[in-house]
Each structure stands twice: as C-alpha cells, then as structure tokens.
Design a protein around this nucleic acid. Structure first.
Ligand SMILES: [Mn+2]
Ligand SMILES: [Mn+2]
Ligand SMILES: [Zn+2]
Ligand SMILES: [Zn+2]
Lengths: 159, 159
DNA sequence: GCTCCAATTGCAAACGATTTGCAATTGGCG
DNA sequence: CGCCAATTGCAAATCGTTTGCAATTGGAGC
C-alpha cells in the first residue's frame, strides 16, 4: 500500500455542492462532473486531464470556464509547474491552498510538501524593498525514487 | 538617481562575443544585437521585448532560436513569472543564474532578490521524500512603492 | 581579399494551451 | 410545467512559441 500522496483527497460531495450553490450558481451536469473529477484526484490536475476523465460529459471549453469560475469562487487553487499548462486543486472550505510541490523531472510525479515556512521571508522581502502584500510562488523539482534507478540516458543520478 | 535594480548590468561586450565564439558558433548580426539588448537591460526580458528593441534587425523566430541556443550554452537563464511568457537574463561567466525576483502585481516592475538561502531546504525536501538533485523555482509577488498610493480600485493597500 | 558551404536567417505556416462568439440547451424558481 | 437567464458545445480566434524551407551569410581555408 503506497502512502497517499495528496491531502484533501476526500471531500464530502453534497457539501461541495452546497458550497457551490451558496454562491448562487447553477450546479449543472458538467460542473458536478468536474467537481467529482477534482475530488477523485485530490492532487493537482490539468484541464485536459479533467476533460479526459469526463469522457465526453463536458466540453474542454467548459472545463476552462469552470476552472475560472471555481478559482474566483475560491473553491480551487491554480498552480504552475512551468510546463505551460495550468493545474488545479480542489480546496477544503476555509483553505487558501497555499502550499508547495515536489515534481519529478523525469516522470512528472507530484508530491505534496506539507506546510510553508516562508511567511517571515515574505515579510523580510516586503520590508527590504518597500513592497506590500508580498506572497510567493515556490515549487521544487528533482528526481523521484522510481526514476533514480532506470535512468533515461544510462548515467546514474547523483547528489 | 534611482538605485540600480539589476545586478549584472554591465558586462564587457567583446568578452561576451569571445565567450560566444568559444562554443564554435557564428556571431551573426542578429545574435550580436540580441546580446547587446540583453546586456542593456540587465534584468529579465521577454523575447518580444528583445524583438521590439531590435527594431527590425532580427526576426522574432530568430530571437526565440537564439534564446534556446544561449540557454543551452549557459549564457542566459530562463525565468517564469507565471504570466505565460518567458524571461531571460544574460549571465556572467561562471554564474548559474540561480536567484529570485520580487514582481509588482500592478505594474510588473521587477526587483532582484540578492542571494538564495534555500539550499538546505532543497536538501531537507530531497531527504524527506527520497528525491535526488532537488532544486527550486521561487518568485515573490507584491505591490511596489509606486503602486501603493494610486490604487487601481480606490481601496488602499494594506499589510 | 575571394570562395565555399554549413550554419543561420526571414517568412509563413503549424502548434498547443487557452479564450471567445454565438446559437442551442438547461437548471431551478415560480 | 413553463420560463428565462445562465450555461453549454462547437468552431473560430488568440497568444506565445516552434518549425519547414528556401535564401542568406560568417568565417575557415586558400
Ligand atoms: Mn498540492
Ligand atoms: Mn534577475
Ligand atoms: Zn509558501
Ligand atoms: Zn533559490
């Protein structure tokens, strides 16, 4: 049994629906399906992955529109792993989603990094430069255990 | 006199040319112009900004091709501020370019953050998850001094 | 200097992610 | 059950970036 890689893996669906409706929005078929897909995955998902998981129950454009909506509603958070596609995670009520990830450069496997010890750094950076409301975006990249042995180029991973 | 915002603002042009030629590459007109533009700016520049600065002396496709080349030669480093366009900085010889930025969310002004105190964090993250060769990507975002007074939405910036 | 050719360029078309216009569909309130 | 604003599917548009190809050019060798 592998350890669960992502927190927020189990959220109550009726509760999600309720949260959604509270913002005076129609809970349509496609939207429900997207929320289910987001909950299933738990970790960061691309719009295209959601689209594939929906198997025709929803158009790709609708996925994008829904992600925007959910983002402004504060129900999902967007992450950027620098590969040109957005990723989203469903948030628990009250969670602002601020956390970081460790991404394998070979297989793109993602591990959640618990907690963030940088709020004091934000303050220092703000202070030192006269900025206000400073936040940060931080992701880690490396080679995961699985990918360390079977190297794609024959050389071994060190360090 | 405003303080200089970017390090590596002055690099010797002949020396840059020499570094370039050492890798057995043709130092063409477009490439020379691009290197000059990169040196002029000092801080992170988008391909389109370089293209504009070149005023017809070089095609946009050539800018992109040159950035790839310079990147693989280790003469520029790519940064990602999450707005969908790449930025590049010319590097001093021997510099790996690892550093971070503070970007204004209103005017997109960029301030360099000196140094990086996270190599021990990289190690901890690697250790804790069985990953190897862990690095990170980190940028800060906030509201710069200039943008704090004249607020775009009438509310004042706090915190 | 002049020749020659692989390296490089400009141009236009292709790309992949994301956005948008619009006519057809639908959730949820009355 | 009917209505209508909200939502959707579809196709076309957009944006940053990449690529094919024929024309151009730097610089090594004479
Ligand atoms: Mn996560
Ligand atoms: Mn910089
Ligand atoms: Zn953080
Ligand atoms: Zn760093």
């Amino acid at each position: 049994m592998k350890p669960r890689k992502h927190r927020r893996a189990r959220l109550d669906l009726p509760r999600i629906a309720e949260r959604f409706r509270k913002k005076a929005r129609k809970l349509t078929g496609p939207r429900r399906a997207i929320l289910v897909a987001l909950r299933e995955r738990g970790g960061p998902v691309t719009p295209r992955e959601i689209f594939r998981a929906l198997e025709g129950r929803c158009d790709l454009a609708t996925v994008y529109r829904s992600m925007h909506l959910l983002e402004t509603m504060g129900m999902v958070k967007r992450y950027d792993f620098g590969d040109g596609q957005a990723r989203f995670e469903l948030l628990e009520e009250g969670d602002d989603g601020h956390h970081h990830h460790l991404v394998c450069r070979r297989c793109a496997d993602v591990v959640e990094i618990e907690g963030c010890l940088m709020s004091d750094v934000d303050r220092q950076v703000a202070e030192a430069n006269g900025f206000k409301a400073v936040t940060h975006r931080l992701e880690f990249f490396g080679i995961c255990p699985e990918c360390q042995g079977s190297d794609s180029r024959g050389e071994n991973v060190t360090d």
